[in-house]
Write a protein that binds this DNA or RNA. Structure first.
Lengths: 185, 185
DNA sequence: AATTCTTTTCAATTTCAATTGAAATCTAAC
DNA sequence: GTTAGATTTCAATTGAAATTGAAAAGAATT
């Protein structure tokens, strides 16, 4: 019969999103649960945001820790390899999601989350959505030029379809600045 | 020395998004190029929309064809296995992206794109975004209850962070109905 | 400049979703 | 009710992306 919840038994890395993403160490159960949930929050969003789960999870632990975390603390808590942590920290630094600091505890570099979440939101909008819309624009331009002319009935139909596609593409593009304004970016 | 462009030499399925996604058959180069570009358009969007590329590509060929296409025509043009086509058609039918019809040519079921692209846009908003926001809401509710109380300075900081997260989450949620309205859904 | 500790790099491996293909099922024509 | 396609199903395979781990590179200390 399984007792309580297995909070820390050599976590099998990022398995079932719900399973122990965070190892306990000697911290309070509350803090660990909190961390767990926050990591889960970001991991859930990872796919939509287009980042690897390990990056999202790393941001999660840093975000959940009132104390700045060092490289090895992060690796420990998530049970990630050094490579993963290094990679994740690089991405997070690049996009400005975390900031390096130093505590007086030791000379290790430590990380705090940048609470300007605006940056992350903006990055998502620009990188994923606008990027996508831009390539779409290019492709549509090419398509307009390339409509097979020939048997006019088919050509007409293809033209109609392309117009329908263009209409929605345009709407989506027009929505972007509205979203920006609303989100106060 | 490689001559022209290899338009149709047993396409290696969905390789480099750009490579020949569509086999030529005996159709005009124009039509094939058009098809290619349209398939590319949807395949590009596949990742963001959260559907497998084969589904996007299938929608692409159907969309690009002024004539309704049959199962086997789709399989031929994309050089997909029967399993892939079957699976893709099922998804597309389920979400109402294509409609079965019959021509008088033979008794095969054939497919035309549903030009109510609104459906697809709506589906994206609901399934990917709103779904995501809903789980986020649940998780945040849990987190608010779970903020470790203890050494008050750390607790304060965590509270601050959670508030920041909540602020953005709320903004994103509020944006949804605005987007819906703007997109005339 | 040698030692130790930390971080990065990247080829190899693992993972997991997407895809295949062959057997099972369905359909309808004879 | 048999045969001949057309389509679906699903276990096995593939392939692309994520992750590992071990060696290389950097830092800081003595």
């Amino acid at each position: 019969m399984p007792s309580a919840a297995p909070i820390s038994t050599r976590a099998p890395a990022l398995k079932s999103a719900v399973a122990s993403l965070v190892l306990a160490g000697d911290r309070s159960a509350n803090l660990v649960a909190f961390e767990q949930e926050l990591v889960g929050f970001f991991v859930d969003a990872a796919d939509l945001l287009g980042v690897p789960k390990s990056v999202a999870a790393t941001y999660g632990v840093v975000f959940a820790s009132p104390e700045p975390l060092s490289f090895s603390e992060i690796a420990e808590r998530l049970d990630f390899s050094n490579g993963s942590v290094s990679q994740a920290l690089r991405v997070l630094r690049e996009i400005g999601a975390i900031k390096p600091t130093h505590t007086d505890r030791d000379k290790l570099e430590r990380f705090v989350p940048d609470l300007e979440l605006r940056k992350l939101v903006a990055r998502f909008l620009e990188h994923r959505l606008e990027q996508q819309l831009a390539t779409g624009t290019r492709r549509l331009a090419g398509l307009k030029r390339a409509i097979p002319t020939g048997d006019s009935i088919a050509a007409k139909e293809l033209d109609r379809r392309l117009k329908a596609l263009d209409k929605w593409h345009t709407r989506a593009r027009q929505l972007m600045p509205i979203a920006r304004t609303f989100l106060k970016l």
